[in-house]
Amino acid sequence: MENSKPRLIEKKLRTVEKRLVDLLTKAGYLKGRSRKFSEITAHIYIHQEVTQKLLRKLTGYSLGTISTTLQTLEKQGLVRRHSDPDTHEYHYELDGTVSQTLFRSLGDVQRYLYQMKEFFRGIEAKLGHPHLSRKKGYENIRQFLDEFNVIVPAHERVFQRFQTVVSDAKAKREVQ
């Protein structure tokens, strides 16, 4: 009986941890990520530093899935990889705090929008050949471009303004 309370407390903490992982996984899934990718990312947010073995233990996913996901996260700049000098095992460390990495991702969205705009310029040029305007499917591409050409700059303004507001609020807090 004496051991039952600490066990209950431990269980409560693990339940919160699982809920947190599930919540972050759901949020990732609803933004178009795979459940596996989102779950692995959630564990990294919580643990801050992981190995492939630890992620395998936490998620049960194959080492192939884990390795591919970590490569993508490393490419995105979310994690940094370093080798343990004793075990030679790779460690993957969250590059900054959870807040820092998520705020940094706003910059990624801005770069994405910029590249979209550049890419659509090339598509406009291709679609501009007069002989294409009577081809089946032309109207679909035209409508797609017309909508994106308006909405992408609008979203760029949203992200620029949001970043400014957040940076100003942060600077204000630091002064205080």
């Binding site: 933004k31 178009g32 990520r33 990718f37 993508t72 995105q76 969205v109 994405y112 979209m116």
Partner: peptide, 13 residues
């Protein structure tokens, strides 16, 4: 680009 910048799965994209 969706995978590179926002982590969206390529099949979904």
């Amino acid at each position: 680009k969706s995978l590179e910048f926002i982590g969206r799965h390529p099949i979904i994209a």
